[in-house]
Design a protein around this nucleic acid. Structure first.
Length: 460
RNA sequence: GGCCCUAUCGUCUAGUUGGUCUAGGACGUAGCGUUCUCAGCGCUAAAACAUGGGUUCAAAUCCCAUUAGGGCUACCA
C-alpha cells in the first residue's frame, strides 16, 4: 500500500514550490491507488504560526488536493519522539551537549578559515552530561541510497559531525522527527524538494541505528526564479494564495505546476487532473531545476478562462465584480461571452468590461480614423445612426443587419466607418467589434453613445 | 572552502534499450492572413544538444575531465 505525505512547516508563506511538491505527492498517491497524508511540521515553536498553517490548508483545498484522514501535527506527538530519544540515549547513540552557542560559532569560524568543513568537534561526546541539547553520535561511514529520480547517491557521513537531533527531550528537531514520523505513519515514498538531498544521509543513518526500514526517496528539482535562484517566498512578494486573489484559476495553477519538472508521454500542454493522475510517473520527472515562467502561466490561465462554460465563469467572476453588475445578470452574461477570450485573469474582467455598464469620457480625437477629415467621420457616424434608427429592435440582432453595416463599410471605407463607430460605442482604442457591442447594448443605448460622439466632434 | 545535484532553442520540455534527429512540441518573439482596433484563430520564420577528450561502424543519447549553474553546510524545516 503506497502511503506518501506532504509535510510543510508553517513557518512562512505557502509557496509555489510547496504547492508543486504537494501536487506531485498527491498525483503519485492517486496514480498508485495509495494514500496522501498531510503532516504539519510545527516543531519550531518560535517560527510556527497559525496563519501560515491556514494558508497551507486553504491552498490545498483550493487546488482540490484532498488528504487522507486527519492532519498530523508534530507538536502533538512529543511523547512519541521522547520515546525514541530515550532509546537513543540509553543505547549510547545520543548524548547531552552543553557547549555554548558562542563556543560553537568560534569553532565553526576557525574551521572555515582553515578551509575545513565545519562540524562539531565532539567535545561533549564522552562527558556524560545530564542536560543540554541532544546530539547524535554520528558513525563514520559511506552511506548510499537509490533516489527514484536521480539514481544512486553516495555520502561520507564523517563530514557531518554529531548533529543536534533535539533541543531537549520535549523539543525534537527536523532530521530526527521526520525519521520517527515517516516510520510511525507508515510512509512508503518520500517525495520532496531537492534541497533535502543532503538531509537524506542523516535520516538514513538514524533509521539504521533505530532499526527502521527506510522509505524510498524521490527528490524533485527545485523551482527557480528567472535568475536561476531557489524560488523563495520573497520572489515577487507572492505567496501561493495571492494567485487566487489575482484571478488565477485553480485548474490553470495545477496544469502549470505539473509541467514544471514533468511532462506526459505525448507532448501535450493542457491536462485535466484526471489525465495527470492517469499519466503521472516519477520516472519522467526532470532532474534539473525549472525556471518559473510567468508568461506561460498567464497563457494557461487565459486558456482555461476561454474554455470555461459561461455560467461557471460567472460564478468564478463573482468576487471580482461589483454587486451592481451582478444585478444586471443578463447583460453581465452577454458581456462575459464577448470578453472572455480577452481575459488573462479573472481580475482583468472589471477593467475590460467597464464600458458596457458606463462609458468613460474620451477625447474627440480618438474618434478620428488615421487622417480622415472629421467632417467625413461625422457624416459616416450620422449615416450609421440613421440606419440604426430605421431598424426595429429585433432586427439589430439579425445577421442581415450585420451584413448591411459591412456593405456600408465596404462602400465608405472600413476604417472610416467601423473605427469611429466602435470608439463611439466603447470610448476605447481597443475593444470588441462594434456589432457585438450594439447587440449587447441595444438600440437606445447605442444611439445615445453615437449621439454623444457626434456632439464631441461638433464641439472640437 | 567542503559535500551533493544538474546541464537540449530566451523559458518549459520531446528525446530514456546509441542509428528513423538535416533535433520535435509548447510559451514567448517576428511576419502574414482573418471585416477598423484589441483579443482569438490559422499559417510561416528565427531560435538549442555547454566545452574537450574518449568508447563505437554510429553519440544529444554511454564514460571521463573541464566549465557553468544550483542546493546544503543551524540548538530552521
Amino acid at each position: 500500500m503506497v502511503k506518501v505525505r506532504f509535510a510543510p512547516s508553517p513557518t512562512g508563506p505557502f509557496s509555489l514550490g510547496n504547492a508543486r511538491t504537494a501536487l506531485f505527492n498527491w498525483l503519485f498517491a492517486r496514480h498508485e491507488g495509495g494514500q496522501f497524508l498531510l503532516r504539519i511540521e510545527d516543531t519550531d515553536k518560535e517560527r510556527s504560526q497559525k496563519k501560515f498553517e491556514k494558508e497551507i490548508i486553504n491552498s490545498l483545498i483550493w487546488l482540490g488536493l484532498n488528504w487522507h484522514g486527519s492532519i498530523v501535527y508534530q507538536s502533538q506527538r512529543l511523547e512519541i519522539y521522547k520515546r525514541y530519544l530515550g532509546k537513543l540515549l540509553k543505547e549510547g547513540w545520543a548524548y547531552y551537549c552543553n557547549c555554548s552557542l558562542e563556543m560553537l560559532e568560534a569553532e565553526r569560524q576557525a574551521q572555515l578559515s582553515q578551509g575545513l568543513a565545519p562540524k562539531y568537534s565532539g567535545r561533549c561526546r564522552n562527558l556524560n552530561n545530564t542536560s543540554g541539547v541532544i546530539r547524535f553520535k554520528m558513525p563514520a561511514k559511506i552511506i548510499s541510497f537509490h533516489d527514484l529520480i536521480r539514481g544512486n547517491i553516495k555520502f561520507d557521513t564523517s563530514l557531518l559531525g554529531d548533529i543536534v537531533i533535539a533541543k531537549s527531550l520535549e523539543e525534537p528537531l527536523y532530521n530526527f522527527a521526520v525519521v520517527v514520523d515517516d516510520w510511525e505513519m507508515g510512509i512508503t515514498q518520500v517525495i520532496r524538494g531537492e534541497d533535502h538531498i543532503s538531509n537524506t544521509p542523516k535520516q538514513l543513518i538514524l533509521q539504521e541505528v533505530l532499526n527502521i526500514k527506510p522509505p524510498k526517496y524521490a527528490h524533485l528539482p527545485l523551482i527557480l526564479t528567472p535568475d536561476r535562484k531557489k524560488l523563495s517566498s520573497r520572489f515577487l512578494q507572492k505567496s501561493f494564495g495571492d494567485y487566487k486573489k489575482d484571478g488565477y484559476l485553480a485548474e490553470a495553477m495545477l496544469n502549470f505546476l505539473v509541467l514544471l519538472g514533468w511532462h506526459p508521454v505525448q507532448d501535450r500542454e493542457i491536462l485535466s487532473l484526471e489525465e495527470m493522475i492517469a499519466e503521472f510517473d516519477l520516472g519522467r520527472v526532470q532532474k534539473a531545476g525549472a525556471v518559473f515562467n510567468q508568461t506561460k502561466l498567464d497563457w494557461l490561465n487565459a486558456y482555461y478562462l476561454r474554455h470555461l462554460e459561461i455560467n461557471k465563469l460567472l460564478e468564478r467572476l463573482k468576487p471580482f465584480v461589483s454587486s451592481r453588475w451582478l444585478k444586471k445578470k443578463n447583460l453581465l452574461k452577454k458581456v462575459i461571452e464577448i470578453e472572455k477570450e480577452r481575459l488573462k485573469s479573472l481580475k482583468d474582467f472589471a477593467q475590460l468590461s467597464q464600458f458596457f455598464f458606463k462609458i468613460k469620457d474620451y477625447p474627440a480625437s480618438l474618434l478620428i480614423w488615421e487622417n480622415t477629415p472629421s467632417q467625413k467621420i461625422r457624416s459616416n457616424l450620422e449615416t450609421v445612426a440613421n440606419f440604426i434608427k430605421s431598424k426595429a429592435r429585433g432586427e439589430l440582432l439579425k445577421p442581415e443587419f450585420e451584413k448591411e453595416i459591412f456593405l456600408l463599410a465596404q462602400k465608405e471605407g472600413r476604417g472610416e466607418i467601423l473605427w469611429p463607430l466602435r470608439v463611439a460605442l466603447s470610448g476605447k482604442k481597443s475593444s470588441p467589434g462594434p456589432l457585438e457591442i450594439i447587440k449587447t447594448l441595444g438600440k437606445t443605448e447605442s444611439l445615445k453613445r453615437i449621439n454623444l460622439a457626434l456632439k464631441k466632434l461638433k464641439n472640437s
